[in-house]
Design a protein around this nucleic acid. Structure first.
Lengths: 230, 230
DNA sequence: CGCTCGGTTGAGCGTCCTCAACACCCGTGG
DNA sequence: CCACGGGTGTTGAGGACGCTCAACCGAGCG
């Protein structure tokens, strides 16, 4: 019989497609596509109108905004478990950003048509999508807030910590990670010029919070906490 | 018979409660309360859990965030036509901000219970609320964006223009408005220290974009445009 | 009168931006 | 093998902007 397509997913219990009555589940299965993306591949383009709902189930996505002059800037990251593309789905317009994989990644896709079918049959799904949207709003406001209250250096440190805990590995009394993005992207992410980012990294390094060499970042296990505490 | 409670509202055509089948409309009427607030009155408190959905139908509301240390800061304004309180409604948690009237104002309130009843009967309403949430998200990102790209002076000018067109009046070859908030609030709104706000105003004045005296702001009609163009 | 409160003005300072030069990595091509 | 060039990242100098602290001003009020 129709198993729930998210049944084996690591994020099943928090899935927006769950719980679902049997009939809706088989409806969902029809429109459900699991997709692997190589690093650099783009999932959807800014301005495109293909309004699927995507659930990141592995890897990392860059949500970029492309200015009228062609320059693009990394606005935020989407980690496994996050829903992306819901904004265009809810508003029914075009995507206002583009999403591309920063490392080999996987998404589960439900095409707009099918998603709307499922929602018609099970309105609770829409409720859960709306909740994700409200979460996104909270995050955005949080970001706006921290921009005023937290120093760029600290925000960079927080970001690196987040990446470290998501993708890092243990390495002799500390952790190590290979950053999946360029300095330029890193700079965009915390909202600073690349030169400034470089200097912030130097400062963190001088303070003993980390060691950086190219895209390799190492952080001492406990000492970093103590040093960063200051 | 049960008229639609929003029927006579200036924002009826964009109402989230519209269109609605007759049966749902009378359901809505039951939970529908129009409320007048005096300047300074607060609509809901941060941390409170009474999750009505509010529609601003007149006046102006301040959405404030109150820090753990008791200091409050004006995060954003809610103009007539906007829905507020939907975040707590969607997430089912407490309000993360407080809303208070900056001038004599009016809101239309639908209590959580009744709102959920209406939604159960007419899921399209939830869809419209979700859309408003996505709008809010867009606005928030827009704000984040403009923070990086637009100077504080220009952002202040834009804000004053917005207030001017919402609440200003014609006055001898220009427009005039009485600001419904303190300098501190104005400063919070554009994310700047009060001293800096004062200087920004001086600069705008020196450039001929406006004349400010206390809470009175005057803007020349066309010359301002030309002067601001520079 | 003197108080407080909101607002303005001034001085000093830190941070970040811009522009520019330079260092480095790694490919291609001689 | 080495020279070259582009892309990427770092470093330096100079300047703009906003923050903080502090003094001051004016209005409203006991």
């Amino acid at each position: 019989m129709a198993e729930h397509p998210c049944g084996t997913c690591r994020f099943y219990q928090d899935s927006i497609w769950q719980p679902l009555p049997m009939a809706s589940a088989s409806l969902l299965s029809k429109g459900f596509v699991r997709r692997e993306l190589a690093a650099g591949e783009t999932l959807y383009h800014q301005g495109s109108g293909c309004r699927s709902v995507y659930c990141v189930s592995g890897g990392l996505f860059a949500i970029r905004s492309i200015g009228p002059d062609g320059t693009s800037s990394l606005m935020r990251l989407a980690y496994p478990g996050e829903i992306i593309g819901y904004r265009a789905f809810l508003k029914g317009g075009e995507h206002s950003t583009e999403a591309s994989a920063l490392m080999p990644s996987r998404v589960c896709t439900v095409a707009e048509r099918d998603a709307r079918h499922v929602i018609r049959a099970s309105p609770a799904v829409l409720e859960r999508i709306a909740k994700r949207c409200a979460d996104g709003l909270d995050q955005c406001r949080e970001q706006l807030m921290s921009k005023e209250t937290v120093s760029n250096k600290d925000r960079l440190f927080d970001l690196l910590n987040r990446l470290m805990s998501a993708f890092g590995e243990e390495a002799g009394g500390g952790r190590r990670v290979r950053l999946p993005m360029s300095r330029q992207d890193l700079a965009d992410l915390i909202g600073v010029a690349p030169e400034t980012l470089s200097r912030l990294l130097s400062r963190l390094e001088r303070e003993g919070a980390l060691r950086a060499s190219g895209r390799r970042i190492e952080m001492p296990a406990d000492p970093a906490q103590r040093a960063a505490q200051r």
